[in-house]
Amino acid sequence: MNKLIQNEMMKLIAKKRLIVIAIIIGVLVMLFTYAQYKQVQTQREKLGTSDWRTILQQQIVDTTNRLSSSRMTDEWKKQLQISLQQQKYYLDHDINPTEPGAPTFMRIFLESSIDLFIPLMVMVIASDLVSSEHSLGSIKLLLTRPVKRWKVLLSKYLTLCLAISLVIAITGILSYIISGVVFGYKGWGAPILTGFNVTDTGLNTSEVKLLSLWKFLLMDFGLVWFVAIVVGTLSFMLSVLIRSTAAGMGVMLAALISGAILSNMVSSWESAKYFFMVNLRLTDYMKGTAPPIEGMNLSFSMMVLFVWWAVALFVSFFVFTKKDVY
């Protein structure tokens, strides 16, 4: 088994996928760093201060005024109210929600890339793991060896899990190193609040906890990893089912993008919460924003993702061991 994994790993590295992904992540992080830097600067110019309390107070007042506008959907209003209460809570407890520094940038980058960007990167690796063997013709060589088929597939799957772990690690390391140049490398111990509960009546702050940013980041990473594994397994399944890599990627891409669009408009279509793609934003539960559909929480989303994961894994192994290869 170990040798099989080593072999798969070698193939993966030979394809230079990881390097390509690292370059993509690096470029994107640079773009975001610059964008954020510009944003901070314009804000400073506009308000004439860099004092976070003043800026936060101003944001609270601005949000309050936006809430009084009548042309606003109910969901949007609710989201604004929740973020307003959260901002007030931060201000009342004298905690800066966006402590400047590379760790905060990392947190924001992770939170905003969990539902589209990271899954896309994972897809790049996962979607041709099996189908490329078809197109190269090497699948026959692989399967004529005296090894059980499920072992071959398992080695591929485990390699995928390892590669995903590496991609997440690369994301973390690159975003820390690159953004640190601008924002500084400190801020691991900055306090951050978690445990906001979104209820029908608004935001429940009775269970709020104070965490160090590094702990919070490790949790965020864990959740991102889980999402990446699920998405990876799904595209792995497609790679087994569909011979054409491009078609498999297309299907997965469509699903991911539809998820990003759906979560903005499904609040009235309740059964949509069983789709995997509206459940990808796990880190939002840690942060405490309103879920896209009422009644969703961390364990619900993780359960849904787990079921999709299990089914995808089962289907891939079932099909791969049974199908005729020609």
Binding site: I5, Q6, I168, G195, M219, G222, M286
Partner: peptide, 22 residues
């Protein structure tokens, strides 16, 4: 491969911690 395994474990710990803490 060894590095990947290490990170895999680290993220697993993070995931467990997140669920536990939540």
């Amino acid at each position: 491969t060894a590095i990947a395994v290490l990170f895999c474990l680290l993220w697993l710990i993070g995931l467990g911690w997140a669920v536990g803490e939540y």
